[in-house]
């Protein structure tokens, strides 16, 4: 297999997970795309180190780079934190009345806003699980933490998200009872 084919295989295998990781960290899929590109650029430049490793070894290597990059980026961006926070916490769109697609879209917005407000560790875990389909064990390899820790974070996150949806559903149910 030539170099480009090897890289394509690596890229296709891990891009969703890396993008989901950075989306969880930044809350912005386009900023996440830029960071993902930087990670895979490094992988491209050091491909011989990665080829021949098992998928879990490749994932560990890639996410070590990703975590370091996230830390570096955080340091550089810290002075812009106020503006970033302001941009990142725009309120969800005002709810429109009632059709099923609108309600579904509102529920997605409610979950999105609840995810944004999760503690970062939970947000990253739930984003990687939902957006890239990784198992708890695979997320654990990527993050360098025990699988039980990932399961715990996911459990806490799901509890919070479930509560957010229940709170959204409650007024509608109350209104129907009147």
């Amino acid at each position: 297999m030539d170099r480009e084919a090897e890289f394509r295989e690596l890229y296709e295998a891990h891009r969703d997970a890396v993008h989901a990781y950075f989306t969880g960290r930044t809350g912005d899929r386009w900023a996440a795309a830029d960071l993902m590109q930087e990670v895979f650029m490094r992988a491209w430049q050091r491909l011989p180190e990665l080829v021949g490793r098992p998928a879990s070894g490749q994932r560990a290597w890639i996410f070590t780079v990703a975590r370091n990059l996230a830390v570096d980026t955080y340091r550089h961006e810290r002075t812009r934190a106020g503006a970033e926070a302001a941009l990142g916490h725009e309120p969800a769109a005002a709810p429109a009345p009632a059709s099923a697609p609108v309600i579904a879209a509102e529920r997605v917005a409610v979950v999105g806003e609840a995810i944004r407000q999760l503690p970062e560790e939970q947000r990253v875990a739930v984003t990687m699980s939902a957006a890239s389909g990784l198992t708890s064990a695979q997320i654990a390899t990527a993050l360098g933490v025990p699988a039980g820790t990932v399961r715990y974070r996911l459990s806490l996150a799901r509890r919070t998200l479930g509560a957010a949806l229940a709170a959204y559903d409650q007024p509608a149910g109350t209104a129907e009872e009147r």
Partner: peptide
Amino acid sequence: TLAAWAATVRLPDAAAADIYQQI
């Protein structure tokens, strides 16, 4: 709902292909 939300944050395939080409 999570699956629907994930679809809104996932990187579109075209963007992923552009990034691949640039690399």
